[in-house]
Design a protein around this nucleic acid. Sequence first.
DNA 1: GTGACATATAAGTCTGACTTTTTCGCCGGT
DNA 2: ACCGGCGAAAAAGTCAGACTTATATGTCAC
Lengths: 233, 233
Amino acid sequence: MSTPGRGLHGRVLDALGPAITAGEYPPGSVLRTDELSQHFEVSRSVMREAVRVLESMHLVESRRRVGVTVRPRAEWNVYDPQVIRWRLAGADRPHQLRSLTVLRSAVEPVAAGLAARHATAAQCAELTECALGMVAHSRGHELEEYLVHDVAFHRVILTASGNEMFARLGDVVAEVLAGRTHHEVMFEDPDPAAVTLHVQVAEAVREGDAPRAEQLTRAITTGALQELDVLAP
Amino acid sequence: MSTPGRGLHGRVLDALGPAITAGEYPPGSVLRTDELSQHFEVSRSVMREAVRVLESMHLVESRRRVGVTVRPRAEWNVYDPQVIRWRLAGADRPHQLRSLTVLRSAVEPVAAGLAARHATAAQCAELTECALGMVAHSRGHELEEYLVHDVAFHRVILTASGNEMFARLGDVVAEVLAGRTHHEVMFEDPDPAAVTLHVQVAEAVREGDAPRAEQLTRAITTGALQELDVLAP
DNA sequence: GTGACATATAAGTCTGACTTTTTCGCCGGT
DNA sequence: ACCGGCGAAAAAGTCAGACTTATATGTCAC
């Protein structure tokens, strides 16, 4: 999914990033680059590159004569897809999943409304195709196939909104949906009501009915929130 | 405001980042690290650190035997505060401002609703204080003082929502509001109706009236959108 | 035309020496 | 006891050069 092993510094990041976001090095901790480079058995130059990336994510701050200090969580760039992935893989996965779902509940309805106004014919076609795909795999425990179409559906909505900020949340939504399917309790088939709502959203967008698209999508996201409340109270 | 000149690689970024986001190096362009390091008169190690940061922002991709290629805009990490600042400083500032305002219109109402449920007494106090400050400077062309309280107001709302993703948008909102005051046409005093709405939002949050806080905030953001439509059609 | 192989290219890595900034502790003065 | 300056140490920052590795591309035989 991501880009594993794109060089030595990447492998260092894949080890250090999750460790920091998991709180293994709590905020305020001080690291030293040459200790780290010894620990990971890489040269200082490679280590420095990794630290620079962590610094650009506001996970750490590097200062002379003091070292590399871990920043408080409130300052982290929590929208960085890499950071999101690290946190979803770590201990506070439930908390992170809730934050992201709340974000979805704010963004997706508005995005759907905009999509109803701006979607091209091709995007409308793709949307209905996705909705049909969801219907086709909504029974019989075909969760993986269902997930693929679900993700595609929301991606099209976000893209068709015409807003680049919304479009970039496609990856985030994909992570949330995948996380829900793979790690939460989800033995049963998806909620039939949710499936119907998706089909109706596709309809509304196709007909250019922005308020209806928005309201239906709001129903979807509040459903997702309630589901989360039930599973992780 | 930001962190200027935190090392040589930082200065390189401050030159290269805006150049890329401004389209000076269009997507697909290929740069070579040693050419760049000569151009900026820094060592290759410094240049490599800068490239790593740009890579973590998904602005460029570094591949062996090819060089550093600029990625298409659709792949940029547009939520990175640094990227936002670069783009706001560049040519497509109006476009960026619109994207961010649409994002605000999606997020802030939901955040206000959550704030009404979760805000502490101290946060409520701060909120009303901000609202009063806005009222106090709403006439007589005291735009700067007004801006300070406006930014603080929205920051408190986003923080009080209790959602870390929302809270982190405080900087973005601050940039948008500052941009509107400083660079757009804004000779007149702020809209009295908007001022009143802010006071009412503070009330609603204090009283724990989530639906009202949400709806009032929605009125604020749609007003901001309409204002943008008038100024930059 | 197709496939295997050689080659050139640019990024990637490592090492060691040097510089710069900043903290902390020491010391003397008040 | 307090404060201000002074010096030393510590850690990041910078640089230069040599070497390694992956890979795109072109060449040649078939």
